[in-house]
Amino acid sequence: MSLLIALVGFHILLFLYGSGSLSLLYPKFRSWFYYEVAMLFGPLLFVHLQCLVFNKKRLKLIDTLHLLPIIIFWFGYGDVLLMEGKVRNEYIYENFINRTMPWNYFLAFQMVIYAIGCSVFLYLKRFEFRNKHRQYALLLVVAYMFSAILISYLTHYADGWRDFASYYLILTLLIFGVAYLLFKYPDFFKQIRKKYFSSNLDKTDMLRIRTKIETAFAKDALFLDRSLSISSLGKILDEKPHHVSQTFSEFIAESFNDYVNKHRIQKAKKYLHDTKYSNYKIEAIALESGFNNKVTFYKAFTKFTGLTPSAFRKQKQ
């Protein structure tokens, strides 16, 4: 998120440079990084949403696919970027419609695609967000979607490069507006949550759901299901997913992931302590306990016990 905010500021500086007289005095960097930086907004937002849901810590190889639009841009416009500064300035001026303008449409299209993708992701994973993160994510997605719509409109209807100043002005005011809103009215999101995200569950209903959760975990060991989610748990309990989510956040006072992992760690500790499983590797213990991989298992085990699984096993031995 820090990188995204920094790139937004850098992008605004690039616009001021490229649309003003500075680009005529110092044409060397004209059009450099402008499109590439803007094409990173959507990917950074999408990855940030993944971090909120999946507690994602590192990028994976598949995440490099987000750079595909930038690579396409380099192949299609790289010859212009490699021109000498003054030559590039003249070339852009003379061939703006047929060479530069298509990439403006390409950028607008890329932003719209990510706006739709982030919106769909937010909707599908809405019950897996922590309550305080859900409204935060909603605000980010709405802001990005609004920006994508505005830049698409300006790309199609603007008469000149300077017309895009309204986009950057609104983007800047939006960022400061949100910051002021959160600073001045810290309960603002709580009001939105009560109006749009909360249900009419009372304590009796949440007590009933908590009892069903505890029974299902103790009797059926649902936490051993590596694909368990709020949605699937709701189906098993015959309860609405958002009711289950609300019960976790407001009544159990623990996130769904922490609740599940805590039970899995208890199971893993029994395996590590039992001599019958002394020949099991740590990864096998992780899978037997309901974790998808060893890395997630190590993080959760260390979080709840203060020891690594290997250290815990040695200590017990």
Rank of each mutant, 00 (worst) to 15 (best):
N95H: 15
I151S: 05
L140K: 05
K269R: 08
F217N: 03
V141T: 04
T100Y: 13
F256G: 13
I92P: 09
R210W: 12
P186F: 09
H11E: 11
N98E: 15
Y168L: 00
I192N: 02
N200A: 12
N98C: 11
I213W: 02
R134G: 12
I149R: 00
L272G: 06
S23A: 10
M83N: 01
I285M: 06
Q191G: 05
R58F: 12
A311V: 02
L3C: 04
Y271P: 03
S229W: 02
S21E: 15
C51G: 14
Y180T: 13
V142W: 06
M206H: 11
A311W: 10
S245V: 04
P43E: 12
N104A: 04
T305E: 13
D163T: 02
L307D: 09
Y153Q: 00
L182W: 11
V37H: 09
V8Y: 10
R193C: 01
A221P: 00
L40D: 04
L82P: 05
I170H: 01
L16K: 00
K294I: 15
G78V: 07
R130M: 10
K203R: 14
Y35E: 14
T305P: 06
I72F: 13
V295F: 13
K299G: 03
P186Y: 09
Y185P: 01
W74V: 10
G234T: 00
T215Y: 06
Q317T: 07
T211M: 12
Y271R: 06
K303I: 03
L222D: 09
I97D: 11
S310N: 13
K276I: 14
L207P: 03
D238S: 14
L150G: 01
N200G: 11
I213T: 05
L13H: 05
G20A: 02
L24A: 06
F188H: 04
V8K: 11
Y277A: 10
N104W: 14
I62G: 02
R162P: 01
R126K: 12
L169F: 12
A143C: 05
Y123F: 15
L287A: 12
K60L: 14
I149N: 00
H66S: 14
R134W: 06
Y136V: 07
I209C: 06
F176S: 09
H273G: 09
R30A: 14
Y17D: 08
G78W: 02
W161I: 09
G78D: 04
N95R: 11
G160M: 12
N261Y: 11
P309W: 03
Y144G: 00
L154W: 03
L224H: 06
L40N: 05
I5C: 01
G9D: 10
K195T: 05
V80D: 08
M1A: 08
Y168P: 03
K60Y: 14
H273A: 15
N131G: 14
A115G: 15
L14H: 10
